[in-house]
Design a protein around this nucleic acid. Sequence first.
DNA 1: ATGGTAGGTAGCCTA
Length: 262
Amino acid sequence: MRLATWNVNSIRARVDRVVDWLERSDTDVLAMQEIKCKPEQFPREAFEAAGYELAIHGLNQWNGVAIASRVGLTDVETSFPEQPGFAKTGDPVVEARALGATAGGVRVWSLYVPNGRGLADPHYTYKLDFLARLREAAATWADTPTALVGDFNVAPLATDIWSEEDSEAVTHVTPEARAAFHAFEDAGYAELSRRFIPAERTYTFWDYKALRFPKGEGMRIDFVYASAPLAERATGATIVRDERKGKGASDHVPVVVELADA
DNA sequence: ATGGTAGGTAGCCTA
């Protein structure tokens, strides 16, 4: 099975590029983040015409996660247990940042971890709490084939970011954020892109601002964590840098893993 | 020169 994750940064603005890549890459399951729409606004037809089923979770124009699969899609959940909420004012709302579904015998979670915004911002506490709660939930799934994929908004290693002084990424490089990221290893998970692609300065995101892509100034923040029974089936991984090129590109590119049959 | 772009919607937006 070929499983991919991609922060698409608005599926309505990107549907042609995404479905075109899905078909060219022969991908079976695609987890998307930042679809930026409600389910009724999602361009279903293009995916369905290409042979994919969809699970979609979006509450408004922000965040939003989805999964497209051509190997079945069942048991959809739109949050994980104890997923924290957030609100600038008023009562916290559990945002559309997690979507679980079973595809081809694998429990896939499409995840969009909060950005954090700034070190003194409540959004940073939210980010750390989100990662901690996700790890607790993930620990209970570790004995079954489970994939935690998406935009983690953490650059785990110094070599995963063009500059650790980048003001846009202060919450992506702190010891706390990095510890929260690596804690999934203690919960029984292995990050598959690193296993197959250990190279330095290998990025999955380049900010639209400041012409970061042409300058080669990016971050590696999109990942695929697999539970032990799934990780042992992995045979390869790819970061599709070419998808950052040209008109109408997302600011993130797909991360793909190959999984042998069980 | 501490910005720059992009996608949303009309927010004192978010990334």
